[in-house]
Simulated assay, not measured.
Amino acid sequence: MKKLINRVEAVVDEATEGLGLAHPDLVRVHLEPRYVARADAPVQGKVALISGGGSGHEPLHGGYVGRGMLDAACPGEVFTSPVPDQMVEAAKAVHGGAGVLFIVKNYTGDVMNFELAAELLQAEGIEVRSVLVADDVAVEDSLYTAGRRGVGGTVFVEKIAGAAAEAGASLDEVERIARRVSENVRSMGMALTSCTVPAKGSPTFELGEDEMEIGIGIHGEPGRERMKLRPADEITAMLAGPVIDDLGLQAGEQVIAMVNGMGGTPLMELYIVYRQLAQILKQRGIAIVRNLVGNYITSLEMQGCSISLLRADDELLRLWDAPVHTPALRWGV
């Protein structure tokens, strides 16, 4: 294992501390319990958005804390859910009196711990709602989930719900918008290589030099099929087809598209994938009206990519275009 780390047990704390030192104008970091909060939080009268999950998926979630997105993020250990104490203390630190919305990826540990945190906060008089993200069309159940996994669609939910909260929307309205996004986004990913969790010290799974896995999860969970490596255009079609079909997209519709790297994929290769995705959608009469290409939800150093599509309309586009200023996402400011 070759990694730029000091001690395995210090990886997440040191990375979180580094995030805070790199962006003191945007975030502040608390290590016991561990959370990343918006620098100017609490913002009085604003719904507070909180998300979190295992580390190793950077920039998700800490990189999305800031104006127009999350108020706080709770990083767990690598590929391990954060604990309820983190969510509770983060919520108390950023609650501005208008309620809290938890954005939760559909992994068993995340769901259970966020639910417990919500109960504890409700008992203290803080109103909490939760929206589940389950956008992965690859498999229905996995090692970590009951139902579909929450993957790249989380970025869309955090951005668009964050814009609504920033504009002063009520808790009911922010929850409604977050659910709209969650219901209208789908994703699918693939891997060319495994990744190595620092505490384990060896690859999560083995892939031959000429093999790839279609439908892989962001923790290295098995996908739909392991097969011989194919050209990028064929791989793109294997990912895009199920996403388009599951959404039921029709000619004349609009989407926001994301081609996401898994941490170890050159940007050059992601643009090759985006090129083919754009051609596939154009042939179907579906317009890409906004896009992201790059590393937005990763799996340590895994080589591979994922495709996410969000069915877009005027309301969602307006909120997507709204200003955002976080360590990892910034426009309109």
Rank of each mutant, 00 (worst) to 15 (best):
V157L: 03
L4A: 15
V78D: 07
G252N: 10
G332H: 09
R176Y: 05
E127T: 11
L19R: 12
P75T: 06
G223M: 08
L239A: 04
E89D: 14
L281D: 00
V155W: 00
E225K: 13
N184D: 14
E173P: 07
G68Y: 05
G201Y: 03
G53V: 01
D246K: 15
L319A: 07
P84T: 11
G62N: 05
L70V: 04
Q250M: 14
R224G: 11
Q122N: 13
L310A: 02
N184Q: 14
P323K: 11
V94E: 07
I280F: 10
G63T: 04
G285R: 06
V293S: 07
P24E: 11
L309P: 08
I235G: 01
P82M: 03
L31D: 09
H57C: 05
G241S: 12
T265D: 11
I126T: 05
S308G: 08
K159R: 15
G220W: 00
P203G: 02
A278F: 08
V157K: 03
W320Q: 07
G66E: 09
L60I: 12
F79R: 00
C74L: 11
I288P: 02
V47L: 03
V197R: 13
G217H: 04
F114S: 06
G152Q: 11
M1W: 10
C305N: 11
A164E: 08
S202C: 07
R275Q: 15
L317D: 02
G96C: 06
Y274W: 13
G241H: 08
V29I: 15
D245Y: 00
E211Q: 14
G248P: 06
V88R: 13
L171C: 09
Q44Y: 05
A240V: 14
E213T: 02
V83S: 12
A232Y: 12
S182V: 08
V255H: 12
G153C: 02
E269M: 14
G261D: 06
P231D: 09
G63P: 05
D13Q: 13
A161Q: 06
L101I: 06
R224W: 01
E253Q: 15
H61N: 06
R311M: 04
V139G: 06
T298K: 12
E225F: 06
V65L: 01
D172A: 15
